[in-house]
Design a protein around this nucleic acid. Structure first.
Lengths: 154, 154
DNA sequence: CTGGATAAGTTCGGTTTTTAAATCCAGCCT
DNA sequence: AGGCTGGATTTAAAAACCGAACTTATCCAG
């Protein structure tokens, strides 16, 4: 797969494409940065805000959008002697983005890291074995990217 | 890995995080939609524009940014009797995003597709074997997402 | 009770980006 | 020359972002 064949139009129009739908939902800078922070375990409004430097209006609106879309769950947490405060926790839907964001981290490691060792890497639990994002077939064996073929629904 | 442990701050600050750098570079709606179209083989300005409905100013600026960042290569194509026109072709850097975008497609299939068969799926060349985004260890064997552990550079 | 601290969220006005429409410009053909 | 194509630029309005200030509610201490 040295080069993708030229097409004048994608085989699936953006209207019906689930990738385009996903991009419409989460494909903006603040949303992606919020999801990143959530994947590392950040949950509280002020923590998102101070880590990301995101304007409060924007943060509030994005968190609400992610909650409404089901990617985050808003929970109430109350420590003794403190008032109840909200936490924004990834739902199963949101957590399913973890592999994609780890894959994008590794893309960034490869191409944006300027030759430095990445500040964070990922291993298999209980071993030092580095893991990387890839594709597997139904039996769990790796498939190289150049072996992948798109199939249109017939 | 039922729940990600709460942290007040990510283990890697956004400044030094390659994921955050990647998000800063490509994490906007039009850029992602352009990359999607490019991965399907769209190369020409007008084709991007008509497929995406992207304002020409925005498209021109985003294509330039992607060329400057090295994700796209601007090539000159000239058919006999026609004038030279530019094509925007994915570089190796840009093409490396393919797995991430396929993974995001499958995330969209799972959560945004509303129970319908996805309009496009992906198989291994020469077989009907469906492939999916996953993680593998150094030997190419699948690692489940709940087995993945982040490791900070020491 | 009052006052202070905390923290999630809102308001407000200025700035920047996006947007739709129009226009420009260059290379090709007739 | 005129017309067409197609990449890029200009323009003004709309939308989104942004920084700063403010509001509100819940807690504790004095």
């Amino acid at each position: 797969m040295s080069q993708i064949p030229l097409v004048r139009r994608s085989p699936v129009s953006p209207d019906t494409c689930n990738l385009a739908k996903a991009i419409d939902l989460i494909g903006d800078r603040w949303t992606l940065l919020i999801l990143r922070a959530a994947l590392y375990g950040v949950r509280r409004f002020d923590d998102f805000q101070s880590e990301l430097g995101c304007p409060r209006t924007v943060l509030s609106g994005r968190l609400k959008k992610l909650v409404d879309a089901g990617l985050l769950t808003k929970k109430s947490y109350k420590a003794p002697g403190k008032r109840a405060r909200p936490e924004y926790v990834l739902s199963a839907i949101g957590l399913s983005l973890r592999p994609i964001l780890i894959g994008l981290t590794q893309w960034g490691d490869a191409w944006l890291g300027q030759g430095e060792a990445p500040p964070i890497s990922f291993t298999k639990a209980g071993s030092k074995s580095a893991i990387r994002a890839a594709f597997v077939d139904v039996e769990g064996r790796e498939v190289r990217p150049d072996q992948i073929r798109p199939v249109l629904r017939g």
